[in-house]
């Protein structure tokens, strides 16, 4: 199951996109997600798609790989498309299927909305494919930095996020181990009656929670032993460096924004 889902997976590389400052990437994707909603005609959607394609091309990650990652959401896209196809009643009737009639507006609307959805997922996937989770964390911490003045525990939140990410593979391994141990005791995780399924899930979750609490406790002790006492007086090993290329990419998004405003109908 996890093999097909590439959202959230990092693909190592040295492309210009990989090397962008994570803050720049976060801002680009965030801005893109907002301005996608400005598009309302063929030209503006073409512009947005062009930008997304260019971004992917520069990352040197193969289109087929990205496309494969988008597969799981294809059903959602298809559903949206069909919904609009049959529900929107604008413009001329193009054809008639049984009691349902397809209007010109429906085709347009359906195509645009599906494309919008695809582009949103496409760009956010690009972010995670080219940025390690820890870089994302650093970027978020840095961007949220000003909130510290408002007593938002930014450092703690970022550390929490970093540690959770670090322990995901460990927990996956643990889950697999416990599932195997319970399967050896006759638990069937793939089927059975509802009550059996519930029991199976309990036999997995209880040990998983217990070991996670134990881990958390030991980790906290180890952190204290290694001199951790909150964000005060702490230096940072990972440092972000804003480069001219980051500014250039942000400028490109600004340009995209301007063009969208001009060309939308």
């Amino acid at each position: 199951m996890t093999n097909h889902l590439i959202i959230g997976q990092y693909v190592p590389g040295h492309s210009v996109i990989h090397r962008l400052d994570p803050r720049a990437k976060l801002l680009i994707v965030f801005a893109y997600v907002l301005i996608v909603f400005l598009a309302n005609n063929a030209v503006t959607y073409a512009l947005l798609s062009l930008f997304a394609f260019a971004f992917a091309a520069l990352s040197r990650i193969s289109f087929s790989f990205i496309a494969r990652g988008l597969k799981p959401i294809l059903w959602v896209v298809l559903f949206t498309l069909l919904l609009h196809l049959f529900m929107t009643k604008e413009g001329d009737v193009i054809c008639q299927i049984g009691p349902l009639s397809v209007y010109e507006g429906g085709i347009k609307q359906g195509a645009f909305i599906s494309l919008r959805f695809l582009l949103l997922v496409w760009m956010t996937t690009m972010l995670t494919l080219t940025t390690t989770p820890i870089e994302v964390t650093d970027g978020v911490e840095s961007l949220l930095g000003p909130l510290k003045k408002m007593r938002v525990p930014v450092h703690e939140l970022a550390l929490m996020m970093a540690i959770s990410l670090r322990f995901i593979p460990t927990l996956m391994e643990e889950t697999e181990k416990i599932m195997k141990a319970q399967a050896a005791r006759g638990v069937d995780f793939s089927g059975g009656r509802f009550s059996e399924r519930m029991k199976a899930i309990v036999s997995l979750l209880v040990p998983l929670f217990i070991s996670s609490f134990k881990r958390a406790d030991e980790l906290a002790t180890a952190m204290e032993a290694r001199g951790y006492r909150g964000g005060e007086g702490r230096t940072k090993f990972r440092q972000l460096a804003w480069k001219p290329v980051d500014t250039v990419f942000l400028a490109a998004v600004a340009l995209l924004f301007a063009l969208l405003c001009l060309l939308r109908s």
Partner: peptide, 19 residues
């Protein structure tokens, strides 16, 4: 496993230095 804080080896070694 339960004393490895960093996302990578270098981050983990850095942890106590940062502190």
């Amino acid at each position: 496993d339960n004393q490895f804080v960093g996302a990578t080896v270098e981050d983990d070694i850095a942890f106590a230095l940062e502190n």
